[in-house]
């Protein structure tokens, strides 16, 4: 590994200035759980690392029932699942934060970092898609907002341009009758990369027997995390029953275009998409009905 410069920016403007000056030879350091490994293994290259954890706006979260959640891009994962109110309002996000790496990783790694690493198998991104999160991006020409569903462009690539930095993730406020769930499938029970991940958000009608609206995000089934928009649209107005969940699983399977690799054969991934969407929908609907779901390390219900 070669010598690398390190700079700890104190403000968004300073970070943007450093990143703009060095272009793709500069890399952002948040929790560092991806970038440091990638630099060491020669998967990414950098002359300068810009540490963004000392920028107040990037660390921390603020939650307001009316305005929703603002999550600093470098906030470590444990801050999410340790906050009961956030767990209640954004349960798929909490599901994902709980299973990214182990405890040590979760004490450093951030949701913003997971998003910017832009792995097709990222655990947080399907949950962010399900929760309809938006990215606030700062750059040399000011700020812009991009839906998470449009953020990733290819494996390891995203819409961030030269000098740009993800500042916060914004989540809409949560109303009555909403629920969400993120599930991933791995052959082990922790410390593994998703074979498939499925994030689901639902809103039920007043009687809580019909799905009023739904959003689904999938991981590890396409070159980027995949918003299953058609399935979400199809679910609107359907009864919240096991048969509906199963058919949604089938429909999601038709959207997926997975590859075969060391983590799974493609055929199996396709099958698992259906299983996970079905199960995650059931979990999201349970939560929308006020049922508490326990947690096991692999994110599956007990």
């Amino acid at each position: 590994m070669k010598d690398i410069e390190y700079a700890a920016a104190r403000s968004v403007d300073e970070a943007v200035g450093l990143l703009a000056a060095r272009g793709d030879k500069a890399r952002i350091l948040a929790g560092g759980t991806d970038i440091l490994v990638q630099l060491r293994e020669g998967l990414r290259d950098a002359d300068l690392i810009v540490d963004v954890k000392k920028i107040p706006e990037l660390v921390g979260l603020s939650h307001d029932a009316k305005r929703g959640l603002r999550l600093g891009a470098s906030t470590p994962c444990y801050r999410i699942y340790r906050d009961a109110k956030i767990c209640a309002a954004y349960p798929a996000l909490a599901d994902a934060a709980r299973i990214i790496g182990g405890w040590q990783i979760q004490s450093r790694a951030s949701i913003g970092g997971n998003l910017c690493n832009s792995s097709p198998a990222a655990d947080s991104i399907p949950a962010l898609i399900a929760h309809d999160a938006r990215c606030v991006i700062a750059g040399p020409s000011g700020r812009r907002t991009v839906p998470v569903a449009e953020f990733c462009t290819a494996p390891g690539r995203n819409v961030l341009a030269r000098g740009e930095l993800l500042v916060t993730l914004e989540f809409p406020p949560v109303g009555d009758g909403e629920g969400a769930r993120y599930l991933r499938f791995i052959p082990r029970n922790e410390m593994d990369i998703a074979v498939v991940g499925a994030g689901v958000w639902v809103k039920l009608n007043a009687a809580k027997d019909t799905i009023a609206a739904a959003r689904i995000g999938l991981a590890a089934v396409a070159p980027t995390p995949l918003p299953a928009t058609e399935v979400g649209a199809w679910l609107a107005g359907k009864p919240a029953t096991a048969a509906t969940f199963a058919e949604a699983g089938d429909r999601a399977r038709r959207l997926a275009k997975p590859i075969s690799d060391m983590r799974s054969p493609a055929e199996y991934r396709l099958h698992i998409v259906g299983v996970l969407v079905t199960r995650a929908l059931a979990g999201a609907v349970d939560r929308a009905r006020g049922i508490v779901i326990g947690h096991s390390p692999n994110g599956q219900e007990h």
């Binding site: 052959p187 082990r188 029970n189 922790e190 593994d192 990369i193 690799d261 060391m262 692999n298």
Partner: peptide, 16 residues
């Protein structure tokens, strides 16, 4: 070999 790391070479963990 495509899985020469403990991430993708799936030895059991305590949870398994």
């Amino acid at each position: 070999m495509r899985n020469a790391s403990y991430l993708d070479y799936r030895m059991p963990t305590a949870f398994d």
